[in-house]
Computed example of a mutant assay.
Amino acid sequence: MSRAYNFCAGPATLPEAVLRQARDEMLDWRGTGMSVMEMSHRSDDFVQIAETAEQDLRDLAGVSDDYAVLFMQGGASSQFSMIPLNLLGDKTGADYVNTGIWSKKAIAEARRYGEINVAASSEDSGFTTIPDQAAWQTRADAAYLHYTPNETIGGLEFDFVPDSGDVPLVADMSSTLLSRPLDVSKFGLIYAGAQKNIGPSGLVVVIIRKDLLGKARKETPTMMNYQVIADNDSMYNTPATYSWYLAGLVFKWLKEQGGVQAMGEINLRKARKLYDFIDGSDFYANPIERRFRSWMNVPFTLADNALDNEFLKGADARGLLNLKGHRSVGGMRASIYNALPEAGVDALIGYMAEFARERG
Score class of each variant (00 low, 15 high):
residue 1 M to Y: 10
residue 8 C to G: 15
residue 9 A to N: 12
residue 11 P to T: 15
residue 17 A to C: 06
residue 24 D to S: 13
residue 25 E to G: 02
residue 27 L to T: 13
residue 42 R to Y: 09
residue 42 R to K: 14
residue 43 S to F: 10
residue 45 D to R: 13
residue 47 V to I: 13
residue 54 E to L: 01
residue 54 E to D: 12
residue 58 R to K: 14
residue 59 D to M: 06
residue 62 G to C: 10
residue 68 A to T: 05
residue 71 F to C: 06
residue 73 Q to W: 00
residue 75 G to L: 07
residue 80 F to G: 02
residue 80 F to A: 05
residue 88 L to V: 12
residue 89 G to V: 11
residue 92 T to D: 11
residue 96 Y to D: 03
residue 98 N to G: 00
residue 99 T to D: 09
residue 100 G to I: 08
residue 103 S to R: 07
residue 104 K to M: 13
residue 105 K to C: 01
residue 108 A to G: 03
residue 108 A to L: 09
residue 109 E to C: 02
residue 113 Y to Q: 08
residue 116 I to R: 04
residue 119 A to F: 06
residue 120 A to V: 12
residue 125 S to F: 02
residue 128 T to P: 00
residue 129 T to H: 07
residue 130 I to Y: 02
residue 134 A to Y: 01
residue 144 Y to K: 04
residue 145 L to P: 07
residue 147 Y to E: 02
residue 158 F to R: 11
residue 160 F to R: 05
residue 162 P to K: 09
residue 163 D to K: 10
residue 167 V to I: 12
residue 178 L to P: 01
residue 183 D to P: 03
residue 188 G to K: 01
residue 193 G to C: 07
residue 193 G to F: 04
residue 195 Q to S: 15
residue 198 I to Q: 13
residue 200 P to L: 14
residue 203 L to I: 15
residue 205 V to I: 15
residue 205 V to Y: 01
residue 212 L to P: 02
residue 212 L to Y: 01
residue 215 K to P: 00
residue 217 R to P: 02
residue 221 P to W: 08
residue 223 M to R: 14
residue 224 M to Y: 07
residue 227 Q to L: 15
residue 233 D to Y: 11
residue 244 W to M: 10
residue 246 L to A: 06
residue 248 G to N: 11
residue 262 A to E: 13
residue 262 A to F: 03
residue 263 M to D: 00
residue 265 E to P: 00
residue 267 N to F: 04
residue 272 R to I: 09
residue 275 Y to W: 04
residue 276 D to T: 13
residue 283 F to S: 08
residue 297 N to R: 03
residue 297 N to Y: 00
residue 297 N to G: 09
residue 299 P to M: 07
residue 309 N to T: 10
residue 309 N to L: 08
residue 312 L to V: 08
residue 312 L to A: 08
residue 313 K to N: 07
residue 320 L to T: 07
residue 328 S to W: 06
residue 330 G to M: 08
residue 332 M to F: 04
residue 333 R to T: 15
residue 335 S to D: 10
residue 337 Y to M: 12
residue 338 N to D: 12
residue 339 A to R: 05
residue 343 A to T: 11
residue 344 G to D: 03
residue 348 L to Q: 02
residue 348 L to P: 03
residue 351 Y to G: 05
residue 351 Y to L: 04
residue 358 E to W: 00
residue 359 R to L: 07
